[in-house]
């Protein structure tokens, strides 16, 4: 490989060191404010929320919701997908629902999602094809509605929303969520979208009860 120049090396070193300097400053600040802060965290976690969001660097879940360490269990992947055969996300849902007993599950998409855009690009994306295929499937499920939207930007925005709705549905298809809800009346599943224009979350106002009933007509796994 080409040997990086002195300048590049210096820059990389600085951007790397910055993380550690920032981290030390952050820890020091919290210890000053509350000497017990880290000791308490060390004892365990009892988050009320599970967040399933996009990997996009612009949406740090805790920061944009004003939550502190210990409050939100997090899974982030490309385009906030919940795939039935994906052991990764299924392990997260399982652990959060069955072991941590979270009260809310939030699926949060965002407008201008690169994953959604890439999925709708007529191009071979190699390794990403199978993952992004799930988004094309969302389009196909809602083809009639989406095809009617002539403005391309608005059509993408709507696809982002519909993708969130479908992922909420996928969460409801799991035995963990169905069984916990039958027993405890939680978790409740929410679908939200984050907008970069104003930094605000939009609630898609999913009717959880109705959606669950609809799902269980075919996907009923509530009997243990």
């Amino acid at each position: 490989m080409a040997v990086p120049s002195e300048q590049v090396i210096k820059y990389l070193q600085q951007s790397h060191d910055r993380i550690f300097e920032n981290n030390r400053a952050w820890a020091e600040e919290h210890r000053k404010k509350n000497p017990e802060f880290f000791t308490k965290l060390s004892a365990g976690q009892e988050p009320d929320y599970l967040w399933i969001g996009c990997s996009d660097s612009r949406i740090p879940a805790e920061a944009i919701t004003g939550l502190g360490p210990g409050e939100m269990f997090i899974h982030r992947n490309i385009a906030n997908l919940v795939c039935n055969t994906d052991l990764n996300v299924m392990s997260v849902v399982n652990y959060a629902v069955r072991h941590l007993k979270v009260k809310h599950i939030v699926v949060c998409g965002h407008y201008g999602c690169g994953g959604v855009k890439a999925a709708m690009t007529p191009k071979d994306m190699g390794l990403l094809n199978p993952w992004l295929r799930n988004i094309r499937d969302v389009y196909r499920l809602h083809e009639a509605e989406l095809d009617q939207i002539t403005d391309e930007e608005k059509r993408y925005d709507r696809l982002v929303e519909l993708n969130v709705v479908e992922q909420c549905r996928n969460i409801l298809k799991t035995a963990a969520v169905q069984q916990s809800y039958a027993k405890n009346d939680f978790p409740i599943v929410h679908g939200w979208v984050f907008g970069f224009q104003d930094g605000l979350l939009k609630d898609l106002k999913i009717n959880f009860e109705e959606m669950l009933k609809g799902i269980q007509k075919i996907y009923d796994l509530s009997a243990e």
């Binding site: 660097s57 740090p60 502190g68 409050e71 899974h75």
Partner: peptide, 25 residues
């Protein structure tokens, strides 16, 4: 890790846009 106690952007005092994130069990 998906663990709620490690909000990456917060603990690194980073800004939105700096860390692309995957968190799992």
């Amino acid at each position: 890790c998906a663990d709620s106690r490690i909000p990456e952007t917060t603990i690194c005092n980073c800004m939105p846009g700096e860390l692309f994130v995957h968190r799992n069990i």
